[in-house]
Simulated assay, not measured.
Amino acid sequence: MMMKRRTFSLLAVAALVAGCMQTQEVDSNVASTLFVQEVVATTSVTRKNTALPKQQILNTVEAKSLAVLQAANPKGYRPVKVNVNIDNFYIANPGAGALLGSTMSTVHTTVEVVDLETNSTIKDGLSVIGSTEARPTIFGAAAIQEAAKEVDIIASDLAQNLKIAIYGE
Rank of each mutant, 00 (worst) to 15 (best):
2 M>P: 11
4 K>T: 13
11 L>K: 12
7 T>L: 11
103 T>N: 12
161 N>K: 01
97 G>S: 09
121 T>C: 10
158 L>E: 00
26 V>L: 07
1 M>C: 10
134 A>K: 12
118 T>E: 04
159 A>L: 05
122 I>D: 04
153 I>H: 09
28 S>A: 13
5 R>G: 14
133 E>V: 06
103 T>F: 06
127 S>G: 08
136 P>I: 08
146 E>D: 13
32 S>N: 14
101 G>V: 02
84 V>F: 00
46 T>L: 11
88 N>Y: 13
136 P>Y: 08
109 T>G: 04
20 C>I: 08
143 A>I: 12
71 A>F: 09
105 S>D: 07
49 N>V: 13
75 K>T: 14
153 I>M: 14
19 G>C: 00
104 M>G: 06
41 A>V: 04
130 G>M: 00
159 A>N: 04
82 V>M: 03
28 S>C: 06
51 A>W: 01
19 G>T: 02
53 P>N: 10
26 V>N: 05
22 Q>S: 02
11 L>W: 07
126 L>M: 10
102 S>R: 12
49 N>K: 12
155 A>L: 03
83 N>D: 15
151 V>T: 04
35 F>Q: 10
25 E>L: 10
5 R>S: 15
115 D>G: 05
112 E>Y: 05
27 D>E: 12
165 A>N: 01
62 E>I: 01
146 E>L: 13
24 Q>M: 10
70 Q>Y: 09
96 A>E: 11
67 A>E: 08
55 Q>I: 11
102 S>V: 15
148 A>K: 12
16 L>Q: 11
146 E>Y: 13
127 S>N: 10
9 S>I: 14
4 K>D: 13
63 A>K: 12
114 V>G: 04
112 E>D: 07
160 Q>L: 15
81 K>I: 11
110 T>Y: 00
137 T>H: 12
10 L>C: 06
43 T>D: 07
122 I>S: 07
64 K>R: 12
16 L>T: 06
67 A>W: 05
89 F>H: 06
72 A>G: 05
25 E>S: 09
44 S>N: 13
28 S>N: 11
4 K>M: 13
20 C>N: 15
118 T>D: 04
132 T>A: 03
42 T>M: 09
134 A>N: 05
9 S>E: 12
78 R>P: 02
113 V>Q: 00
70 Q>R: 08
143 A>Q: 14
58 L>S: 04
16 L>D: 10
58 L>G: 05
49 N>Q: 15
104 M>R: 08
48 K>C: 11
24 Q>S: 04
2 M>L: 15
30 V>N: 03
120 S>G: 14
24 Q>I: 07
13 V>F: 09
17 V>D: 07
150 E>I: 01
68 V>L: 06
119 N>T: 10
151 V>W: 01
25 E>R: 02
106 T>N: 01
80 V>N: 02
112 E>M: 09
125 G>A: 03
103 T>K: 06
27 D>M: 08
54 K>F: 08
58 L>M: 06
32 S>C: 10
101 G>S: 03
66 L>D: 07
132 T>G: 00
23 T>S: 14
58 L>C: 03
91 I>M: 02
31 A>M: 04
117 E>D: 10
125 G>N: 01
46 T>S: 14
72 A>T: 10
153 I>P: 01
93 N>I: 09
166 I>Y: 04
94 P>K: 15
88 N>D: 11
102 S>E: 12
103 T>I: 07
39 V>Q: 02
114 V>R: 06
